[in-house]
């Protein structure tokens, strides 16, 4: 079957496979970069925007180290094409601390020693903050279940749970 692009409505909107300009909105700033369509959001962040806080643990959607927010919801940047992110707001760990002041979740992770090697940590924190926003942290079992997409091979899990509880309870004013 021949490709008949002349009749395809898509004709004018086809992009790639070579690199083309893309506009990404990351942490409130707009970045215009040239990317091929095959580049994931994760690689765009790490290799093209030099935002290496978002980690590559598996590139397969099985570890959660690459967790970022798209329009406020946590997603895996390794399974998201950068092209699909145009027009959406991306938030990464680099945007969490404000004016040099750590987010309470970041401070709680330090205080509770909620990491060792630190490689899963940005993803854990992006998930943990979203978890509280989602309202999925009412019980210890809720926290454990809804954080399970973020693997910590150092097994800092009990300390991560403690950090999340602390921030949750402070948010509640308790």
């Amino acid at each position: 079957m021949a490709i008949n692009q002349s009749t395809a409505p898509a004709e004018t909107g086809l992009r790639g496979p070579r690199g083309e300009p893309v506009t990404l909105d990351v942490n409130g700033a707009t970045y215009a970069i040239e990317l091929e369509p095959r580049v994931s959001l994760l690689d765009a962040l790490r290799d093209h925007l030099d935002m290496t806080g978002t980690k590559k643990g598996c590139d397969q959607g099985t570890c959660g180290a690459c967790t970022v927010w798209m329009d406020g919801r946590r997603v895996l940047s390794c399974l998201t094409l950068a092209y699909s992110c145009e027009g959406h707001q991306i938030a990464t760990i680099e945007g969490i601390a404000q004016d040099g002041e750590l987010h309470p979740m970041q401070q709680a992770f330090i205080d509770h020693d909620a990491f060792q090697c630190g490689y899963c940590t940005p993803g854990q924190i992006m998930s943990a903050i979203a978890l509280l926003r989602e309202g999925n942290a009412t019980t210890d079992a809720d926290i454990a279940e809804h954080m399970s997409g973020n693997i910590c091979r150092c097994q800092a899990y009990p300390n991560i749970h403690a950090a999340i509880r602390e921030v949750r309870d402070a948010d509640d004013g308790g």
């Binding site: 806080g53 990491f115 630190g118």
Partner: peptide, 13 residues
């Protein structure tokens, strides 16, 4: 607390 904690929780390490 870990002295490299801030580097790890901010992703700057």
């Amino acid at each position: 607390n870990r002295v490299d904690g801030p580097d790890k929780v901010t992703g700057t390490g």
